[in-house]
Amino acid sequence: MKETNRIKKDSNESLLCTDSGTLCNQESCYDTMTISSFIDGEISPEESEEVKNHLDNCPVCRQVVDHYLSFEKALNSGIASSFKDQDVKILQNRIMATHDLYAKKGADLNGIQNKIRSKLHSIKDFASSSIFSLPKIYLQIASLAAIIILSITALRDITDVNAPMQSVMAQSSPSAIVTSVNGDISSVIILETEDTHHTIIWYQEV
């Protein structure tokens, strides 16, 4: 029997669960895998009953269920007929994997940004600590010119240093990150191919 997993979070984090104002502690919420198993009927009847009772009072988990159901509905509609025989789980896993990649990428990019910031700071520190004997105005202008020149050089250096890393990331990240989808459409699927991580958006007009 598979054990249901509750999300373990800081007990101070709580959300408004019902219109009546009852607070829903996220500790009692289920993780997405459990909810997915619940939808697929892969948990025991007792556990299923427990999840059902929780869903009656928790809009957060209900929203996750709605999300999964709409996804399943899209796959089972005409949209699925275009794709090869891939079940819901494979597509879900792909989408989850894509999300993970975005998260990893975001972390790496933060690192690059920090490197750029620290380089620029060190450049500014160098300029301000220089002991030129020229009058103040020249010193300011020279500092400005130095900052501009060194900034350009530093940014180019950083790009070069990170080029191999970007190349590795490029190979494993999706060809396109889809940040929003909208329109007169009944359903949409976003996926990427296994080999080259080519991003595909498939939508169905109303």
């Binding site: 396109a176 990150i177 989808v181 329109g183 958006i201």
Partner: peptide, 12 residues
């Protein structure tokens, strides 16, 4: 001439 689909992407 009627917008039916829009998306924002970040293409490598």
């Amino acid at each position: 001439d009627k917008q039916v689909f829009t998306t924002e992407i970040q293409l490598r």
